[in-house]
Design a protein around this nucleic acid. Sequence first.
DNA 1: ACCTGAACACCGTTCAAGT
DNA 2: ACCTGAACACCGTTCAAGT
Lengths: 190, 190
Amino acid sequence: METEAPLSTREAIMAAATNTVMTEGYNALSFRDLAADVGIKSASVHHHFPTKGDLAEAIVGRFGEDFTKRMEPLLDLPFEEALDGYIGLFRSAFVDSNRMCLGGMMSAEVSALPEPARAQLKGFVEAHKDFVRAVLLKKHKRMASEKLEGRVFAIFAAMEGAQLIARGLGGDAAVFDGIVESYKASGLLA
Amino acid sequence: METEAPLSTREAIMAAATNTVMTEGYNALSFRDLAADVGIKSASVHHHFPTKGDLAEAIVGRFGEDFTKRMEPLLDLPFEEALDGYIGLFRSAFVDSNRMCLGGMMSAEVSALPEPARAQLKGFVEAHKDFVRAVLLKKHKRMASEKLEGRVFAIFAAMEGAQLIARGLGGDAAVFDGIVESYKASGLLA
DNA sequence: ACCTGAACACCGTTCAAGT
DNA sequence: ACCTGAACACCGTTCAAGT
């Protein structure tokens, strides 16, 4: 049984930054606000992350790792449950205080990111594709590889789009659920 | 035959702001850069748009009108061509200098928008739904209304997601085309 | 190693002042 | 009606200085 571990300053900065980016976006993230959240001065944040771009790189990478940890156990489940679990990860982000997937948010703001952060973003997308591919193969064992790759990419993009639009309209879970239901009914999520 | 009409200062501000938001995002938009683009001082921009939120409201509204003007003629075409025309509107945005739909970008940055701008954003989404519904009814004349509404929303969200992800990965049109192809093959866009 | 105050050129916004 | 310079509290970043 773990007690809540005290976060290192570096970890606390990353946690606060991730939360702000998911709710307000990368360009709305301020080193001074971040420092206030953590209890240090803004100049001190630069000791841990020399530039804002370095911080972006770190939190996208970490977010990918955390997402992967939540996806992996779903691979033990059968197709339908694994897919619903994946959907639930997107759903919970904005049902829980109107947050958006960090990867989706960073994709919108990609012009502000330095190259290393963009590379982490590509890695994030690849991790999702690896997971979705593994889930699809549970059911579609003989799908042609080109078709499978297209479907994998399409499912990820569609989930990001559902979250983007549902959250943009005010975070109504029913909107998200309705879109996902139609993805299933049309055959995209099936 | 129209010659290029000289833009009023107000129109020039809106045009420059729209372009910046589509490429870099609303939070990256600066009144001082905007003023420099138009050839006035930043304090003068406030004469036309008292706050940045007022400008946001104006450009989302205008963007919706412009998008509707490009969608309307597509309604004279048969199902397949109308759908491809709609897809082309999303495709051209980022093929042409890696821009993102203003509505999708504003959805990601919705936390920075005042209520009137959010209302315009909802109107933008409704205009898209009206168009997509009309297109779907060309082919699916007897689809149950609840199912139709879900499909309409799903198609719009999926298009925004395809654009978000394809652009986030660097603006490769092949990524966008592959996702759309899979939307069609799976039955979502059909 | 980790933190800080002070400075720099930026930002949105306000306002009194010009034409 | 339209524009402006100057001021305000903000921003990311740098740096010399502290412990």
